[in-house]
């Protein structure tokens, strides 16, 4: 099966021909399969945001291609517009884009632009609100009367309501308290499950991507530094540190345990694996 999104040798140069010209992305290639949850991690300024803007045609590659189901997204105008609806992009701090008088209307903005029928729009708005946990009575409120976390959820619902096959989120939990952040991650996973959608999430938090992602793409200075399952990526703790990134706290604990001479897997990245690794270790010891 063709991957849902393919990035082929993508380069992007900002401000070509001015003194501020610099290469934001250099020869990036990867593909994303249907239904995957991919985490993109990288230091500030590593090109994460530029990369995801290419994935839904907001930025045009200086060279290289983006393929959606095997077809170049820039092949014609209608297709580009279509791809924007199929690949939903939630920006950083999306609550700053809210503008309508009611939460309902704001969520309906995307579906309306798709030219759907009134009934279909209504169905999608309510479904999207359900995914992100906006109670029915809040739909008729002004989005500006909501709390920060609620606003964020309304804004994410605005993209989810277009029911994109690929949902891209740029640091969806930035600036929220841990509980609020965790809730939003749950919402995203619920959406992924219900529609068998593909999710791409940019994040600074290693814990977050460790908990959610099937696969990680590590960017450094506009190039792919590493790619693989969280287990593969987090087993390269030193290289990650070199490019200014971290490993999850649990992984750090296990790295230290290994240094102290315990025979455990140093790339454990979540609590569940950590528990089973420790049990196994004790079991091995008990046998001996």
């Amino acid at each position: 099966m063709t991957p849902i999104l393919q990035v082929v040798d993508l380069c992007h140069t900002y401000g070509e021909g001015t003194p501020f010209c610099h290469d934001a992305l250099q020869n990036i290639s990867f593909s994303i399969e249907e239904g995957e949850f991919v985490g993109i991690i990288g230091h500030t300024g590593s090109g994460k945001s530029t990369l995801i803007q290419h994935l839904n045609c907001l930025a045009k590659p200086s060279s290289g291609q983006i393929l959606f189901r095997g077809e170049d997204v820039w092949k014609d105008k209608a297709f580009t517009r279509d791809v924007r609806f199929r690949v939903g992009l939630v920006f950083q701090y999306p609550e700053y884009q809210l503008f309508e008088e009611t939460v309902y209307d704001d969520i309906a903005f995307g579906p309306k632009n798709m030219g759907l029928s009134k009934e279909e729009i209504d169905r999608r708005v309510r479904r999207a609100a359900g995914f992100v946990g906006i109670p029915e009575e809040n739909l008729q409120k002004s989005p500006f009367d909501l709390s920060g976390g609620q606003k964020r959820r309304a804004a994410i619902a605005g993209v989810i309501a277009m029911e994109p096959q690929v949902l891209i989120l740029d640091e969806p939990t930035a600036g929220l308290d841990p509980a609020g952040g965790e809730k939003i991650l749950q919402n995203i996973r619920a959406y992924q499950k219900a529609l068998n959608a593909t999710v791409i999430m940019v994040s600074h938090s290693m814990e977050e991507v460790a908990a959610c992602a099937d696969r990680l793409i590590v960017l450094n200075e506009g190039a792919v530094a590493m790619m693989g399952t969280p287990h593969e990526v987090f087993s390269h703790a030193q290289e990650l540190e070199k490019i200014g990134l971290d490993v999850p706290q649990v992984t750090r604990v296990f790295l230290r345990l290994r240094q102290l001479g315990m025979d455990v897997d140093p790339a454990v990245y979540n609590i569940k694996d950590a528990v089973s690794a420790l049990m196994k270790y004790r079991g091995v010891n008990a046998d001996a």
Binding site: L58, R84, L89, Y96, F109, G110, N113
Partner: peptide, 13 residues
Amino acid sequence: DKIISAQKARGAD
């Protein structure tokens, strides 16, 4: 610029 991009991502024309 950012707001324009964000609304474009929601299909604004």
